[in-house]
Design a protein around this nucleic acid. Structure first.
Length: 603
DNA sequence: ATACCTTTGAAGAGG
DNA sequence: CCTCTTCAAAGGTAT
């Protein structure tokens, strides 16, 4: 078991990650404010966000007013457009300050958590819970919600949910004490209502009491007799009467599940909160509400159902075989990363605040909010994500992300899809449409022919440089389509890169994380280049945004996460401009970031 | 029914 | 080592 300083220590494994966003949010906001001149649609959104953050009364009332007239565009554009609109409209509301300023999150105090020192819950940890309930508050738009709130002990917030998104979904047999259940609808399920809803606070510490059985019972299918007894955190994990707990273990896991049994309570809780009920004893697989756990793995469920259902008996032998095969290779989902956890948790809020339901739009908003989060706030999610990964590793020692590759589609399709949008980072080169064509000079000419490389490639900052130098320009965007969309999605131009940049800047206050170490390969000349890179013209940025595809508009090599953020996936044409509240748009401050980065490296 | 969109981050593959 | 790709969640939308 890794030692975690969940209590507030900075010794988070994900430090580097967090650092990247340390001040990004603030920076972004600041920048946005100062770059009014360059505001584009996306910027407007940013401003909206900013404004809304300070103006709680802002609203979604005026949504209709802001809605632009219908346009006749390609469905793609249309869709994007709508998403953008939605995001735009919702941004205002989303960024409202939570009812509990400074405590946007709620974390159920877990006195038993191995990650947190007993009785020394950090304030940040405690903040978790608050967020959740306030959400309910928001949600309270509906009578039901309010009523539910009235009854702080209302166990099944599920009924409160008016949307598909469960505002509160209690984990299945998850020990409420676990902090690991706090990060999402499921994980965040407050074992106890927040202080403001229920005065169940430890008089001594002032910290909300950890939920106790009596409180929990309503949330869990515990028999009255179980009240007062804390269910074994591994309850569902514990083999019952010699019966295999996980049907899939029969062939699914590369390693016998017993390993899982060694997982500590918190981990198991996390697991149970996240992992498919199909791995849980049947009677535990559903919420009291009968709602299947969202983490259910589709084909596993099918397997299971086929396995036990009478219907399966009717299926042909072939089907049975297929299913068996599937069974042998259960689809174990990837552990959620920090952002995913955040999204999971916040989605409900967003949905509640807005009428918006489109995930794409919501995600855009969440993405921005994510960046706006303080380092501490993000840290919580990073840590949770880390725990999830650890747990996942423990539970599925042999699992690899690779196992899920193409699980959602055929490889061909996937690849084709992505490649299709690959712009050539180097202007001098035509857009890459050929799958076999190298995307960068580096790959094209090789290391031994660097003289043939374009400047940006030499600097290893192709995309970014494209913008700054102009030598590598953004992908052909002569056709309005490209210009219109892409570029400035938050992740494309700004967020990721800038996050890193800002990271570096803010990093000055702290020791550089490993990830911040300047890459050895970075030569002085490179540094020079970096520092000299002029601010990318807005237009270029926009266009190059498309470049996100190739890893784009990032700081590139300096950023570890750069890679992760570069998502070719997003089709160039489909990139919404919405998010563009980017640093890229910000001339001055933005520019300085790379510089600082370089400086840092040099130093 | 399936894929897409959209976000960030993690991890794997390949150069 | 670096870049690119895929997947994770989610739900409306498009094909």
């Amino acid at each position: 078991m890794p030692q975690l300083n969940g209590g507030g220590g900075d010794d988070l494994g994900a430090n580097d990650e967090m650092i990247s966003f340390k001040d990004e949010g603030e920076q972004e906001e600041k920048i946005s404010e100062n770059s009014s001149a360059e505001r584009d649609l996306a910027d407007v959104k940013s401003s909206l966000v900013n404004e809304s953050e300070t103006n709680q009364n802002s609203s979604s009332d005026s949504e209709a007013e802001r809605r632009p007239p219908p346009r006749s565009e390609s469905f793609r554009d249309k869709t994007r457009e709508s998403l953008e609109e939605a995001a735009k409209r919702q941004d205002g509301g989303l960024f409202k300050s939570p009812p509990y300023p400074g405590y946007p999150f709620i974390m159920i105090p877990d006195l038993t958590s191995p990650y947190l020192p007993n009785g020394s819950l950090s304030p940040t940890a405690r903040t978790y819970l608050q967020m959740k309930w306030p959400l309910l508050d928001v949600h309270a738009g509906s009578l039901q919600s309010r009523q539910a709130l009235k009854d702080a002990r209302s166990p099944s917030p599920a009924h409160i949910v008016s949307n598909k998104v469960p505002v509160v979904q209690h984990p299945h047999h998850v020990h409420p004490l676990t902090p690991l259940i706090t990060y999402s609808n499921e994980h965040f399920t407050p074992g106890n209502p927040p202080p403001h809803l229920q005065a169940d606070v430890d008089p001594k510490t002032g910290i909300p009491r950890p939920p106790h059985p009596s409180d929990i019972s309503p949330y869990y299918p515990l028999s009255p007799g179980t009240v007062g007894q804390i269910p074994h955190p591994l309850g569902w994990l514990v083999p019952q009467q010699g019966q295999p707990v996980y049907p899939i273990t029969t062939g699914g896991f590369r390693h016998p599940y017993p390993t899982a049994l060694t997982v500590n309570a918190s981990m198991s809780s996390l697991f149970s909160s996240r992992f498919p009920p199909h791995m849980v004893p049947p009677h535990h697989s559903l919420h009291t509400t009968g709602i299947p756990h969202p983490a259910i793995v589709t084909h596993n469920v099918k397997q299971e159902s086929s396995h036990s259902d009478i219907g399966s008996l009717n299926s042909s032998k072939q089907d049975a075989k297929k299913e068996e095969e599937k069974k042998k290779q259960p689809h174990i989902k990837k552990p959620l990363n920090a952002f995913m956890l955040y999204m999971k948790e916040m989605r409900a809020k967003v949905v509640a605040e807005c009428t918006l339901k489109e995930s794409a739009a919501i995600n855009q908003i969440l993405g921005r909010r994510w960046h706006a989060l303080s380092r501490e706030e993000q840290a919580k999610y990073y840590e949770l994500a880390r725990k999830e990964r650890q747990l996942h590793m423990q539970l599925y020692p042999g699992w690899s992300a690779r196992d899920n590759y193409y699980s959602t589609g055929s490889p061909k399709k996937r690849k084709a899809k992505h490649r299709e949008y690959f712009p050539n980072p180097c202007l001098s080169l035509p857009p890459i449409t050929d799958l076999s064509a190298p995307k960068k000079c580096r790959a094209r000419f090789g290391l031994d022919q660097q003289n043939n490389w374009c400047g940006p490639c030499r600097e290893k900052k192709c995309i970014r440089y494209i913008q700054g130098e102009g030598s590598c320009a953004s992908p052909p965007s002569s056709d309005g389509s490209l210009l219109e969309s892409p570029p400035s999605s938050p992740s494309m131009v700004s967020p990721s890169p800038s996050s890193k940049e800002s990271k570096l800047q803010t990093e000055q206050m702290q020791p550089l994380s490993l990830t911040m170490k300047p890459p050895p390969l970075l030569s002085s000349s490179q540094h020079h280049h970096l520092s000299m890179a002029p601010p990318p013209p807005l237009a270029l940025l926009d266009n190059s945004g498309a470049g996100k595809t190739s890893g784009s508009a990032h700081n590139g090599p300096l950023d570890p996460s750069d890679v992760s953020s570069s998502r070719p996936t997003g089709s160039v044409s489909s990139r919404p401009t919405s998010a563009c509240h980017s640093h890229s748009l910000l001339p001055s401050s933005t520019m300085t970031q790379p510089l600082s980065l370089v400086t840092k490296s040099i130093d």
